[in-house]
């Protein structure tokens, strides 16, 4: 049972880390904690669902169109709301994302109603791969692969491309970055677009694992926050480590200690973690200079 618990934990951790990845990209560039992440992913997933269900678009095209939609959604949120904020505070920005979350949730409820749906995904969540007596559903396996690949690509992107470096510069000092000729506003929109797209991937995978409804992202979002904090809010590889750790800890706790308190353990872990190493596992501790 131990092995199976760990494998299942890894699988669910991959979902957390995908969402956490989306969150970290934004936090890295613009210091915003995006509470609307889950709902942005949910709306994108609904778009994919509608394309396939009502307009009979083949899966590949539906995914591509959904990505386009997600990119548009993320960039326009940044453009329409966040950019307009005058002298934003951390709290003000959080409230804006919370407000956006409510708008999106309300919109989803209005457009698609509260019924549970199922997203047609080419990979099954019931068929499994077996190895040494451990089972993992096909979709779990692909979630892990996708999350690792995405993380790796983004890691390279941030480190080596011009835009990636510009993004890091924007985070460190917007004014200086602008002086250096970086179009920081454009960079911010771009960040939101990428993050929203990564979120859409996570949303579709989570919906395919379970069901699609307007409240489906509430729990994964909180857990992904926890994994992002665990791994370090500014570290991309940290999300993978944090997600996997959280998934495994949760499952082991549920399997051996208490199922009842399983949903709380994530928060106990992060509070402990933060008391020991406030910046998370893989991020550098950053002290504000006066």
């Amino acid at each position: 049972m131990l092995g199976q618990l760990i494998v299942s934990g890894l699988a669910v951790g991959a979902c957390y880390s995908l969402l956490a990845l989306a969150m970290v990209i934004i936090y890295k560039t613009s210091d915003v904690l995006n509470f609307a992440q889950g709902e942005m992913a949910m709306i994108s997933t609904y778009v994919a669902f509608t394309l396939m269900e009502s307009h009979h678009v083949p899966f590949q095209w539906a995914v591509i169109l959904t990505f386009l939609f997600a990119i548009l959604l993320g960039a326009s949120f940044e453009f329409v709301f966040l950019r307009q904020a005058k002298e934003p505070t951390v709290l003000g920005l959080i409230i804006i994302t919370l407000g956006f979350e409510m708008i999106l949730m309300g919109f989803a409820g209005w457009k698609w109603g509260p019924d549970q749906r199922s997203l047609d995904f080419p990979v099954s969540n019931i068929e499994t791969y077996n190895l040494f007596g451990l089972v993992m559903s096909k979709i779990n396996f692909w979630t892990i692969v996708i999350s690792l690949v995405l993380m790796f690509i983004l890691f390279l992107f941030f480190r080596y491309t011009k835009v990636g470096v510009a993004m890091r510069a924007t985070q460190q000092n917007q004014l200086a970055a602008r002086v250096m000729g970086i179009r920081t506003k454009w960079i911010l929109s771009f960040t939101w677009a990428i993050s929203s797209m990564v979120g859409a991937v996570a949303g579709m995978l989570i919906a395919a694992l379970g069901v699609l409804d307007p409240t489906m992202m509430m729990d994964p979002l909180l857990k992904s926050f926890a994994s992002a904090v665990l791994g370090g809010m500014t570290s991309l590889p940290g999300t993978a480590v944090g997600g996997a750790m959280l998934g495994i800890i949760e499952n082991l706790f549920g399997g051996y200690v208490s199922l009842a308190f399983k949903s709380v353990v994530a928060f106990a872990v992060i509070v402990l973690m933060l008391c020991i190493k406030p910046s998370g596992l893989l991020a550098k501790h950053y002290v504000k200079k006066v």
């Binding site: 049972m1 199976q4 618990l5 299942s8 934990g9 699988a11 669910v12 989570i206 379970g210 489906m216 509430m218 729990d219 994964p220 998934g247 949760e250 499952n251 549920g254 399997g255 199922l259 009842a260 399983k262 949903s263």
Partner: peptide, 20 residues
């Protein structure tokens, strides 16, 4: 007897418990 919180979205350990 296995319980889950209403908001929980990962039931893999619950399933394992039922099976065992």
């Amino acid at each position: 007897s296995v319980s889950a919180e209403v908001t929980e979205r990962d039931l893999s350990s619950h399933a394992l418990k039922l099976k065992s």
